[in-house]
């Protein structure tokens, strides 16, 4: 059975970085979204297991996505990957129900470690 993954970031490079960092042992079906609105369209219509979510994005930002997921009771594992790494922002993200906060640029070993912690490996 494959894991459904959605990568949401306005930067093409950042999406690729996350995509390339996914371990081979994780059998995945990956979709991409360029902003929060695109991501929510997918999340509302399909069953997704893991969302890799950037914070600073046009249209709807990462905090907006987390809030919508909470309001609409959509349950999945959200890993926030952000350039804004201040402790206060990390706290806000975790309060909104994210599983983990990873700093950009995403590191392969740290991503793997988090996937393992949350039972995806």
């Amino acid at each position: 059975m494959s894991t459904n993954v959605l990568i949401c970031d306005d930067s093409n490079l950042a999406r690729k970085q996350v995509f390339r960092s996914l371990p081979e042992s994780l059998s995945t079906d990956v979709q991409l979204a360029k902003n929060g609105e695109e991501a929510l369209d997918i999340l509302r219509s399909q069953s997704i297991d893991i969302l890799f979510l950037d914070l600073t994005m046009p249209v709807i930002d990462g905090l907006g996505v987390l809030q919508a997921l909470k309001d609409e009771n959509i349950a999945l594992a959200v890993f926030v990957i952000s350039a804004d790494v201040q402790p206060e922002m990390q706290n806000r993200v975790m309060d909104l129900g994210a599983k983990a906060f990873l700093r950009k640029p995403v590191q392969l070993d740290i991503l793997n470690e988090n996937l393992r912690t949350h039972g995806f490996l």
Partner: peptide, 14 residues
């Protein structure tokens, strides 16, 4: 370039 700068800005602000 934008992504490199965003990340640099983020960590510098931190």
């Amino acid at each position: 370039l934008q992504e490199l700068i965003n990340v640099a800005m983020g960590q510098a602000s931190d």
